[in-house]
């Protein structure tokens, strides 16, 4: 029996954890990846777009990569070179892109995929939510074609870039706000879960030992990503973005709660915080499936399993 595939768009700012999220997505028979769109965040738009095209080449993804917005909807861009290096994806050598960049913008590409798809499309957005926010604003007629926006961003308990705000949401709080108030189902993997999605060096040695080209690349991404995290005191690599992929396919290993969530747009100290109504104080109906916990060991096992699927893979370096 063949698995029913769900059409997905991968939107991100790769980025080591975006890249690993996309490896995971590419390995899943449940997904039919329709397009990749990029957004400025971890590095500048030109750099993350080049990275996205190289990742697509590594994974032999026969899809177009469409460049998104270079800046947030209305804020100045923040980037994170201390985590991801000058290229935005420092570490192992990657194959050069196989396909030219799409002539469409990310918004046009997303709209085209939604328009052409008979089924609803899942958008996995693992960078600032700029492209998705722009899509919702400019193609309101396509909202109903979106199955769910699965986002890595925010944190109910705490932030990381500031005490209250997580990086992706801090970069473009308005875009995040538009998602939560769009009526489209949103699944949120915030720091509540992603800081529990810790992969330790012994875990990624399991991946390296698989000894296929993708697994080796993933292990070397971990090596690089962990450098700055270990300086901050982390004992392993917090694998933020892959949660947004895996929680769609294996919700049973995650703790998922229905909350009303919104994004703070003001605030001296809290701009970009995702605020959740845990006690039901506002009377607002839940608009979000907030992922707040996971079974770490099973998460790691799925990751290793995903990397094992690239056995015998050929890569032209």
């Amino acid at each position: 029996m063949s698995i029913k595939k769900r059409p997905v768009i991968l939107d991100g700012d790769p980025g080591h954890d975006d890249a690993i999220a996309w490896v995971l997505a590419a390995s899943m028979p449940e997904f039919d990846i329709k397009a990749i769109t990029t957004v400025a965040g971890n590095q500048t738009l030109a750099k993350v777009t080049y990275n996205a095209r190289r990742i697509a080449a590594l994974l032999h993804l026969d899809v177009e990569v469409a460049k998104g917005r270079a800046v947030p909807l209305m804020s100045d861009l923040i980037i994170a070179p201390n985590f991801h290096g000058e290229s935005g994806l420092d570490g192992p050598k990657l194959p050069e892109p196989e396909h030219p960049e799409s002539s469409l913008s990310a918004i046009e590409m997303m709209a085209k995929v939604l328009q052409e798809s008979e089924e609803k499309v899942t958008i996995i957005a693992t960078g600032p939510q700029t492209n998705v926010g722009a899509l919702l604003l400019t193609h309101p007629e396509l909202k109903e074609k979106i199955e769910v926006i699965s986002t890595m961003g925010g944190g109910i308990r705490n932030g990381n870039w500031t005490p209250a705000a997580e990086f992706n949401i801090l970069v473009d709080p308005e875009a995040s706000y538009l998602e939560y108030h769009s009526g489209v189902p949103v699944q949120m993997c915030g720091l509540d879960v992603t800081e529990q999605a810790i992969v330790y060096p012994e875990d990624w040695e399991r991946i390296r030992a698989l000894n296929n080209p993708v697994a080796k690349t993933v292990a070397e991404w971990f090596d690089f990503f962990f450098i700055h995290l270990s300086e901050l005191g982390w004992k392993g690599a917090t694998l933020h973005d892959p949660c947004a992929v895996l929680s769609l396919i294996h919700p049973e290993i995650f703790d998922i709660r229905d909350y009303y969530v919104t994004t703070e747009l003001s605030g001296l100290y809290t701009r970009g915080e995702t605020v959740a109504d845990v006690y039901g104080i506002t009377g607002n109906k839940p608009n979000c499936k907030a992922v707040v916990g996971l079974d770490r060991q099973k998460f790691v096992d799925y990751l290793v399993e995903a990397c094992a699927k690239f056995e015998g893979w050929e890569v032209n370096l």
Partner: peptide, 15 residues
């Protein structure tokens, strides 16, 4: 000054 977060004690313990 926050709209949703007025009065929050913003603590940096976990960030």
């Amino acid at each position: 000054t926050g709209v949703e977060t007025l009065g929050k004690t913003v603590c940096d313990l976990y960030s």
